[in-house]
């Protein structure tokens, strides 16, 4: 049994953390257990469900399928890093406004995937939204209101919504 430890420096939500990890430590457990950022969830063990989705250097990835050592030097954004100055990110707001969540377990990963989509495509169609969320499983909502939430957020982020 190998008991090697490796020091990594990973910037999470703008703060650089130096930490010692076992090579086998998955990024999701590094975030959850070493940094206490428990908003990133684990829902499966076959890289299917997407509950663990975070942004790594600006791209949505599954943090259950990355070793923390691979993220050494990377910039990570988690669900906890989205809201700024206590204001919700428009996607977070959209999920609340459109009832895009029930139990909330898939929600952080779902939101991180949606944010990633809207960064690249500010005006997605329903089909594009569904396609962008193909790596995230929700068992509560039937996805109907998740799609609505992302559309709502897209509108806000484009700034062309009519204020109500």
């Amino acid at each position: 049994m190998n008991d090697e430890r490796i020091t990594v420096g990973i910037t999470v939500n703008g703060v650089t953390h130096r930490a010692v990890v076992e090579p086998r430590t998955l990024l999701v457990y590094f975030l959850r257990e070493q940094l206490g950022l428990t908003g990133t969830h684990v829902g499966c063990d076959t890289s299917q469900c997407g509950a663990c989705t975070v942004h790594l250097n600006g791209r949505a990835v599954k943090s259950c399928t990355i070793f923390a050592v691979q993220a050494d030097g990377a910039e990570i954004t988690t669900i906890e890093g989205l809201a700024r100055d206590s204001a919700l990110h428009p996607v977070q707001e959209g999920f609340r406004e459109k009832h895009g969540l029930q139990c909330g377990y898939c929600t952080p990963g779902m939101i991180m995937s949606a944010v990633h989509l809207l960064q690249a495509n500010p005006r997605p169609t329903d089909a594009e939204i569904k396609h962008a969320l193909e790596g995230n499983i929700c068992r509560c909502t039937g996805y109907v209101n998740i799609v609505e939430a992302v559309k709502w957020a897209a509108e806000r982020m484009r700034g062309d919504h009519v204020s109500r």
Binding site: S47, R59, V61, T65, L117, A132, G135
Partner: peptide, 9 residues
């Protein structure tokens, strides 16, 4: 291939 996150990695 896979899904968005898989393709990103």
């Amino acid at each position: 291939i896979g899904d968005v996150q898989v393709r990103n990695r």
